[in-house]
């Protein structure tokens, strides 16, 4: 079990952004983390990646405690944050080299070349990040998440704002990564869940409303399309 979340809670003022979320994820499977805007998806992911400290409950990444062993957890995890923040004034290679250095990796030049090739950035690698289009920035975001070969990947809306061609490329990459690693991704696009995910966790207003495999969820709701299931479970 490479991700285990138990009763995770985050409180902002009087609002419980994440309210007792529990689920788990295994290697070799892609877990889709779904929910309406403001359901607590990003907050949960920020706690998994040790960016935020949980107010209650706990989570374990590869058996490491996100509260007590934060630095060790960060080595195991690759994270693509929402909106893909990047140091836009840096060159692609320079940025990826910096990320590799921050992980204390050796043989950085080959690592950067390797990851640039894996995400298909060869033609753009000499440019400044601010000159790249949205799709290529997303690839840089993915590259910085996988450069240290993490066991767990947390991708927050990895395909938002991409055109259909870019979409296909990124999905292909995620599928490939998902075959050996644990991938958890959030999205609003239901076709994407059908195309990519093996398991589904649905949250609404900070609580888990569904936690099943994709096929299990569908058979439970007697063949309703995923979108209808989503609306049924998360409507207020």
């Amino acid at each position: 079990m490479s991700i285990k979340v138990s009763n995770l809670t985050k409180v902002y003022g009087s609002q419980r952004a994440v309210d007792g979320v529990s689920f788990s994820a295994e290697p070799g499977r892609v877990l889709g983390f779904l929910g309406p805007n403001g359901a607590g998806k990003s907050t949960t992911m920020k706690m998994l990646t040790t960016y935020l400290r949980p107010d209650g409950g706990n989570a374990w990444i590869c058996g490491l405690d996100v509260r007590q062993q934060a630095v060790a957890v960060r080595r195991k995890i690759g994270y693509l944050p929402e909106h893909t923040p990047l140091y836009t004034e840096m060159y692609v290679r320079e940025f990826l080299g910096f990320v590799a250095a921050a992980y204390g990796l050796h043989g950085r030049r080959t690592l950067v070349d390797d990851v640039v090739e894996r995400v298909g950035l060869q033609d753009e690698a000499h440019k400044k990040i601010q000159l790249l289009s949205k799709g290529y920035r997303q690839r840089v975001g993915l590259a910085q998440a996988i450069i240290h070969d993490p066991e767990v990947l947390v991708l927050d809306e990895p395909t938002s704002g991409l055109d259909p061609n870019q979409l296909a490329g990124i999905r292909e990459l995620i599928r490939k990564l998902g075959s050996e690693k644990t991938v958890i991704l959030s999205t609003h696009v239901m076709q994407e869940v059908e195309a990519l995910c093996d398991d589904v966790v649905m949250v609404s207003r900070g609580r888990v409303v569904a936690d099943d495999s994709l096929s299990g969820l569908k058979s439970e709701h007697e063949g309703l399309p995923l979108e209808a299931i989503f609306r049924k479970l998360t409507a207020c």
Binding site: Y51, I77, Y79, P81, H83, P85, L86, Y87, A102
Partner: peptide, 14 residues
């Protein structure tokens, strides 16, 4: 402002 702090904070750095 750019939201890039998360890039540093989720690396194995204190």
């Amino acid at each position: 402002r750019e939201g890039t702090f998360v890039l540093l904070a989720t690396r194995p750095l204190t």
